[in-house]
């Protein structure tokens, strides 16, 4: 039997975007592909109770996010969340959470496969407020789409989840959408936001 190399995971934009060594510290306008970074999606009965039992602060209302221990928890429904690792922090907490979830045998919600089914892009930079109206028809003014706001809507001409993150004090928005449309999304953003540099991060 032939010895095989350890399998690596692949993402649609791997061949297209340059790999960055770390989170950029300047404030240039950027689109970053964060798809390879750890995330966990849970849905269904038991989700909120299980998270509470793990000491994770669930946002009180739907369409809000909360940050804790290197994670950003987006509440998409009464019993649906997606948890994004913070690219600026250590992902250990999320990794442990995933392991604990696997090990739990009681009610804990269902794996929503958000670590596979969604592309995860981050748009950041001073031009965000002018960029968002080109991508989505929702009201993206700060008073309507402020820090911590989650919107499930249409963006990039498809269903998408948007969350205002403003990481490191730089205006930024994370967009989650169909992973099979990653190439289309990158084409669209390159077309309407030609001044945005593109790159990708891995864990």
């Amino acid at each position: 039997m032939t010895a095989l190399a350890a399998p690596a995971r692949s993402w649609p934009l791997d061949h297209r975007l340059p790999l960055l060594k770390g989170w950029p510290t300047d404030d240039r306008n950027r689109m970053l592909d964060l798809s390879p970074l750890p995330r966990l999606g849970l849905r269904g009965p038991g989700t909120s109770a299980w998270l509470a039992g793990q000491g994770c602060p669930l946002p009180e209302t739907i369409h809000r996010s909360a940050g804790t221990e290197g994670m950003t928890i987006l509440r998409l429904g009464a019993e649906e969340v997606v948890i994004l690792s913070d690219p600026l922090a250590d992902p250990d907490r999320l990794t442990r959470l995933q392991q604990d979830w696997q090990a739990t045998t009681g009610p804990k919600g269902f794996d929503a496969y958000r670590d596979e089914g969604w592309c995860w892009l981050c748009l950041s930079g001073p031009a965000i407020s002018d960029a968002l109206p080109l991508l989505t028809a929702i009201d993206t003014r700060p008073n309507a789409f402020g820090l911590g706001t989650v919107v499930q809507t249409r963006a990039l001409h498809m269903d998408a989840v948007l969350v205002r993150t403003d990481r490191g004090g730089v205006p930024s928005v994370d967009i989650l959408f169909d992973v099979a449309s990653s190439g289309f999304a990158a084409d669209f953003i390159a077309d309407v936001l030609p001044g945005f540099e593109m790159g990708r991060l891995v864990r």
Partner: peptide, 13 residues
Amino acid sequence: TTPERYRHTALHA
């Protein structure tokens, strides 16, 4: 004027 929507499988490349 949007580009025609397309979807690729993980094996497209």
